[in-house]
Design a binder for these strands. Sequence first.
DNA 1: GAGGTGACTGCGA
DNA 2: CTCGCAGCCACCT
Length: 118
Amino acid sequence: MPKPKINKTEYTFFDDVYDVVRLIPNGRVTSYGAIAKYLGSAQSSRLVGYAMNASGKEMPEVPAHRVVNRNGLLTGKHFFNNENEMQRLLELEGVKVKEDKIADFKLHFWDPILELDL
DNA sequence: GAGGTGACTGCGA
DNA sequence: CTCGCAGCCACCT
């Protein structure tokens, strides 16, 4: 019997991360640091990655494959059901992946700070 | 309640 | 150029 788990803070950093990730347009990618900075915690980029760890059980599904590290490296591909799943999803959206890295990362980069213009 | 963890980042050697 | 180290903070055990 799953517990409600509502006793935790009504608002969490994770939820904010998921929200931003879900705003990433199709065929675009961003970095953990960009999201962290957008949330006002540029130094907490780790939390973003940590949040993605739990994104798999989040609903609706969070396009975690659109989030990579600052180098455009698919650091989280190992966390998907299949390693190739992350790359496949990206290529499916028109993002070319080379050696587990996003080709023309800058070109596909989506900065929430610029796009959402906080 | 305390301790450990991590899908990161930036800077120094 | 590559490699290593420290900071950072919410979540989990």
